[in-house]
Design a protein around this nucleic acid. Structure first.
Lengths: 239, 239
DNA sequence: TTAGTTCTGGTCAATGTGACTTTAACTAAT
DNA sequence: ATTAGTTAAAGTCACATTGACCAGAACTAA
């Protein structure tokens, strides 16, 4: 079966089997820590049921269906493993090292996603799907440890510069909740007063008239995020 | 031939032919403008000699050889089209829309590169390889206009935040040359005195004892860049 | 010798940030 | 009902960074 590949440059056709193409996704959610109760970063992993790396944990993923875009494929395997829809989804990197899989050459296009904690609480969990703290995933299959590390690095970067934290939260939120997101992801305490000043100075944050009632102390204002996701090629020019 | 890759999720195997995989590269170099003589951004394109998009200009690229990593493939087709070795090479994005190519499903993993102008001056040019000003490439094949736009956006971003400008220059350079790089890429004038203050305050810039002689005016100091490329997965943990 | 240009170091006002203080608003305990 | 305890929210101050601008140094060309 002659491969028809033509791409861009003018290149001789090839006969050897091409590397296979897979999509994987690093899914982040905030869940309350077991002890402190404060939110911490978690990711779901799936247990491999065949070789190679049988019985090790790995990122959710699968082959690219012929009729779906890369982003759709990532969205689908997120749905299949956790039952959730992402509130944020972005391409992370294409990993194509020669020896990623011992059996065969595989190129993985990896996405990363954020899901809301309200949903994440009711996410599927089973014998073969389990949530792990992002900083304690143990030894994973393939090069998935490096991938998780890189995804974490990107998440922290985007959080520090871009306006991404709100995708961890619902439509309405208090500034303290936003701060908790930052503290969980960056893993350090932030001064409440200074943090408030910074966040409220960005135009994408809108102060609603509402207050969050029912707390133990002074009721905080509720805010709303009015910005757009990002400017990746997949999301560009969304009006 | 049963596909062995099972990644993470436990997914039914597929039989239909997988999308084919291509590598393309957006190559940036600074060359003196025809009229002003000031440096401007240029990129080399190759003419397509078959359908689809026959006779249109496109990004250099080609299939992924079985024995090379993604980065090596990008490096190779850079060498093949321009005869040059990149001083900087980074993955840009994986483009996998369903209708990128009318004939067949193609997923392109695109890299972007910087080459030094001294070399870029003697780069190959021919009937089917020509350099274009980055902001005037005309209508390209496939989705390559969107790709070039995105690459430009990333270049400007990295320049504004990261320390990437020096890969456009040789080992020794004057601060005015660095400023010219910034002005060419960002397309606006910068105050020489303030620019100097910023650049010299970064620890990656080292002042050599040398001066550039032979100019028309006061001879400027020569500097050296001592930083490392970046922290992509491909380049990580390079000591 | 002078005019023209770039290189280099400097000032000043405006802005942003981290550390900290103070007051407001609520709940829970006494 | 009063008080203690806690969080929300606003403000103050010292410090660093930035953009706009100025001036002297160092060279070439007329």
């Amino acid at each position: 079966m002659g491969i028809v590949y033509t791409s861009a440059a003018n290149v001789a056709e090839r006969r050897s089997a091409p590397p296979s193409l897979a999509i994987s996704t690093v899914i982040f959610a905030l869940r309350p820590s077991e002890k402190s109760g404060r939110p911490t970063l978690w990711i779901p992993l799936v247990r491999r049921i065949r070789e190679p790396y049988k019985d090790l944990w790995a990122l959710p993923g699968g082959p690219l269906t012929h009729s779906e875009s890369l982003q759709d494929a990532a969205s689908r395997n997120l749905q299949e493993t956790t039952g959730l829809a992402p509130s944020y989804l972005e391409q992370l990197y294409a990993f194509g090292g020669l020896h990623r899989s011992p059996s065969q050459r595989v190129v993985s296009i990896v996405y990363w996603a954020l899901v809301q904690p309200t949903e994440a609480a009711l996410a599927d969990e089973s014998e073969n799907v389990r949530w792990f703290r992002a900083d304690r995933v143990g030894d994973l299959a393939f090069d998935h440890n490096a991938i998780v590390d890189y995804a974490l690095w990107r998440l922290r970067n985007k959080l520090a510069y871009g306006s991404i934290a709100y995708h961890f939260l619902g439509e309405y939120f208090t500034l303290a909740q936003v701060r908790e997101v930052y503290e969980a992801v960056l893993d350090r305490q932030l001064d409440p007063a200074n943090f408030r000043r910074q966040i409220t100075s960005t135009p994408e944050i809108e102060e609603t008239g509402e207050y969050l009632q029912g707390g133990k102390h002074r009721p905080p204002r509720l805010y709303r995020f009015t910005g757009r996701p990002g400017l990746d090629p997949d999301n560009r020019s969304t009006p």
